[in-house]
Amino acid sequence: MSEFNGEIRKMMIILSKATLENVYAAFVLANGARMEGIEAEIFFTFFGLEAVHKKKLEHLHVATVGNPAMHMPTLLGGLPGMEALATSMMKKEMEKIDMPDVHEFLDILTASGVKLWACKLAMDMFHYKKEDLYEGVDDVITVGDFYKQGAGLGTHMLFV
């Protein structure tokens, strides 16, 4: 822990899920890093890509099934409209605490200097093109490229 006295210099965050609670977790962590003067980069892979997909990013949902913190029977969570209901309730609460929506949050992240990377393998798998993605995405890169981005002392990597 001698490097920079163990200080964190860069956060490399991998977002692999598209549920609202995970997307916000990754975004808040990246933004919070920048606010402390720590560099931050996000690698969007698998379903995480939906958070930067132009047509999908406004329609992300909270998970009501398989989410014990919802305190709701799994059967109930699977009913039609449950996810939409839970999502709209969560969005209302977020607005109250001044939490931006996904698109505005991406604007804040890019303005704050957070680098956004799309995973090449996942892009190929979902047949997405760079032009399908939010315009602030820096590039489509491989895992190896992402690791190179994280080179240097004081880098921490986080999987969401």
Binding site: D98, P100, E104, I108, A111, S112
Partner: peptide
Amino acid sequence: SIRKIGKSNVVDIK
């Protein structure tokens, strides 16, 4: 907050 300052018309986040 960063968001409020970005909307302040005084300075943008960048």
